[in-house]
Amino acid sequence: MPLIKDGRIVEDEWVAVADGEPVPADRPAIVTFERWQAERASFDGRNAALGVRVKSGTLAPAIAPDLDRFALVAIEFPKFRDGRGFSTARELRERYGYEGEIRAVGHVIPDQYRFLLRTGFTSAEAPENTNPESWAHALTEITVAFQPSLDDPQPLSLLRRRLGS
């Protein structure tokens, strides 16, 4: 599936590894959180970057103790309407100070892209036949926000902020 970063489709250097499949030792790989929990010792001494994929019901406190092991956290949206991931990402950043990549995977739509960035996501997996223009447009169509957030909008007045693009 196409990967969206900075408003455009980019090459994905990560490989998502299904449970039971071998984890490549020589390139960045994403394993499920369940597999990580079951086989964590097997990743000791790994040199290539490791990412973890969490289900929408797995919240930030559950993964927090191991965050220093992950260069990427992929948060699953089973349906785009399931908004738990927004809180998870925000907590990873604000509460646990996580600085790696946070990726939205599963079902997200361009209309959520701005929300994703504002809550701390860095990339998003788009549907196969997605229109890249809709993702790019999502970065510029709204320029005002009413809350502080992770994308650090510039205060315009006391409540309002200017969103960068």
């Binding site: 908004g83 927004f86 809180s87 929300f115 926000a145 809350q147 957030s149």
Partner: peptide, 8 residues
């Protein structure tokens, strides 16, 4: 309004 965390 368009709260990024609480719209879904």
């Amino acid at each position: 309004t368009l709260h990024p965390e609480f719209t879904f």
